[in-house]
Design a protein around this nucleic acid. Structure first.
Lengths: 195, 195
DNA sequence: CGTGTTTTGTACCAATCGGTTCCAAACCTT
DNA sequence: AAGGTTTGGAACCGATTGGTACAAAACACG
């Protein structure tokens, strides 16, 4: 019943996410978004409610597409030791910076800086992602230390790893992930050497 | 020679810095800036060249006002042990979050996310600030470890501390510095316990 | 083959964007 | 007090902002 869509809503959302990701909310104009999504205003406002809703949907997509897999990788006991699972996360960020110059950073991290403080809907989503990441690191760290994931030093270590991760991605956004990556990696390695 | 200024250029710049600091470059409209600076367009465009120049000047002010003192504190051997100087830096960020809810983050860090990738003039300034911070941490760390500030593990540790610091400030911007602060602090303390 | 329903593209909207122009007001110098 | 010089403020600019209205187009169903 009615005229069928000529575009893929998921693909369009993915395009929007990329635009928001490397331009930020304010700097991504509707025109930029529409061009990259390959659709016109008529279709856009019918499919997605407005710019802000699109942004929130892009955040949710990022959670599904990037955060969840990363957390699953950290929690997956069949994917190597806790030590290796943690290191792999940081190594992949450094490698990304080395190969393509990164400059895109982490959408979660970018959103935290430019929208979280001004939009409670964004803040809610980010806090949930931060918590998931903490749980992921905690799971891997608990395995590494042969402790429960709720042990006090495990939680503390997991929080520090989230923070360390965010820092590396900020530096990556500024084009510094190669310069700082090795230092971060070797310190994470040292942190994991402790009992 | 001519009519004298009725505003303090330094105060105006400080206001502009605050506005850019918590709204970002794009979201800070000229109207916002003028309102906070307490001057009209005529005076503004005469004193500061344009919006971007104002932003760069604000970044330079931040370097002078926040980064330099912090780095000096880290390098100052009369200000306690290297261990204490480093911990104090992180402690002050956590305390800031505890007392006023922060939400402002670090201007350097905010600029890295929303401007560095798109403006080489910004990137240049940020890289210089990152390097200074690394030198500051390296100096304190070298004192702590009784090594030279160029020792390989000192440089690595300093880089990791810069990254950790940036991460904490991103989390603070998202209102999470209290939640993550203790974890970060205790891990920094552990990192400093190593020989 | 119509009819009803949905999508699509375009024209249009007021508001705001950063920036310029221009002149009167306000001062210093002589 | 007069002349020279700089500032301050308002009027104005074209371009762009996010968003709406509406009619033509494209399908499913009877």
């Amino acid at each position: 019943m009615g005229r069928p869509r000529t575009f893929d809503e998921d693909k369009a959302l993915e395009s929007a996410m990329r635009v928001f990701w490397n331009q930020g909310y304010e700097d991504a104009s509707l025109a930029d978004l529409l061009a990259d999504m390959g659709l016109t205003k008529g279709s856009f406002y019918k499919a997605f409610l407005d710019k802000k809703s699109l942004y929130l949907a892009a955040l949710d997509l990022y959670a599904r597409q990037s955060i969840v897999p990363m957390v699953e990788g950290l929690m997956d006991r069949t994917a190597g030791s806790g030590h290796d699972r943690i290191l792999r996360v940081f190594q992949s960020i450094v490698d990304m910076g080395r190969s393509n110059g990164d400059r895109v950073g982490c959408f979660l991290c970018n959103a935290a800086v430019d929208r979280a403080a001004h939009d409670p809907d964004v803040e809610l989503r980010l806090n949930s992602m931060f918590a998931r990441m903490e749980d992921g690191f905690a799971a891997a760290l608990a395995d590494h230390l042969n402790k429960g994931p709720e042990a006090e030093d495990v939680r503390a270590g997991a929080k520090a790893l989230v923070s360390q991760f965010m820092g590396l991605r900020v530096l990556g956004r500024a084009g510094q992930s190669v310069r700082f990556g090795d230092g971060v990696l070797s310190e994470v390695r040292r942190l994991l050497k402790l009992g």
